[in-house]
Amino acid sequence: MSLLKASVLSLSFGGVQAIKDVSFEVSEGEIFSIIGPNGAGKTSIFNVISRFYDLDAGRIEFDGRDITKAKDHKIAALGIARTFQNCELFEHESVLKNLMIASDVHRQSSVLRDMLFLPSVRRQELEARERIEEVIDLLDLQAYRYEAIASLPFGVRKMVEIARGLCLRPNLILLDEPSSGLNPEETEDLVFWIEDINRELGVTVLMVEHDMRLVGEVSHRVMAMNEGEVLTTGSFQEVRSHSTVLEAYLGGGHG
C-alpha cells in the first residue's frame, strides 16, 4: 500500500514554476529516489512535504492522512523525518544532545515538571537515552557521542543527521542528497547504511540524489524530473534508458 501519495503538486515562486503537476506514490518499505538536473524541483518537493512551502495546487497524503495543510512542526510527529543538503545540525551541541532533541518529539513535556526535574522526567530521559543508543549502535557513532557538531568532519555530520532523523522514529525518511560532500569510500558505506535503515528498521526512504551509482544500487524505484516536471517513473534500468531522461542529462539545450 502506498505510504506517501502526492497528487498533481504545483508550486511557483514569483512566476517561476518550481513544480508542475507532479504526482507520485511511495509504497511502504520502499526506497524511492528522485533524480534530475539542478533546478529540477527535487528539493522543492521535499520542502513541500516538510510543509516549509505552501502548495499552489495539489494534495499530499501520508499514511492515509491529508497533510497538505498540516502545521510544519507537526510533520515530524506524524512520522516523517528529513535531512538537508548542507547539514542543518545544532552546531554548538553534542551529538548526543542533537539526537535527544529529535527523540523529544514523542514526549509530553511540561515546563513545571522539567523545571523541578521530577522523577518522571528522569525516567523518560533514561528511556529516551536507551533508544538513542540503539541508533548510535546501528550507525556506528559511539566514538562521537560527546563531540560538539562543529568539531566533526563533514562525513560524520551527514551520518549524525541521518541518525537524528532516525531518532524521530519515523515511518518515512527524506534524504536530501545524502552523498553530497562525501568521498567515494563514504558513499560506498552509505549504500549499506541506507539498506540497513530500510531493512532493519523498516523505514521507507525517499531520496534525492545525484550519484547514479548510489541510486542504482539502493533504489527500488526511481523518478526522473526536469524543470519541475516528472519525466518518467520506474526501475533504475528503465529510467536510465528513457529517451527524455537522456535528453535532459545530456543536453537538449536545457542543461
Binding site: 516538510s50 516549509f52 510544519d72 512542526h73 507537526k74 510533520i75 515530524a76 510527529a77 523525518a81 528529513r82 538537508f84 542543518e88 545540525l89 545544532f90 552546531e91 554548538h92 551541541e93 532533541i101 529529535a102 523529544d104 518529539v105 537524528r164 524521530l168
Partner: peptide, 12 residues
C-alpha cells in the same frame, strides 16, 4: 538557537 529550520523539522 542553532537552526530554526532544523528545529521545525524535529517537531519543535
Amino acid at each position: 538557537r542553532d537552526s530554526e529550520t532544523s528545529a521545525v523539522s524535529m517537531g519543535i
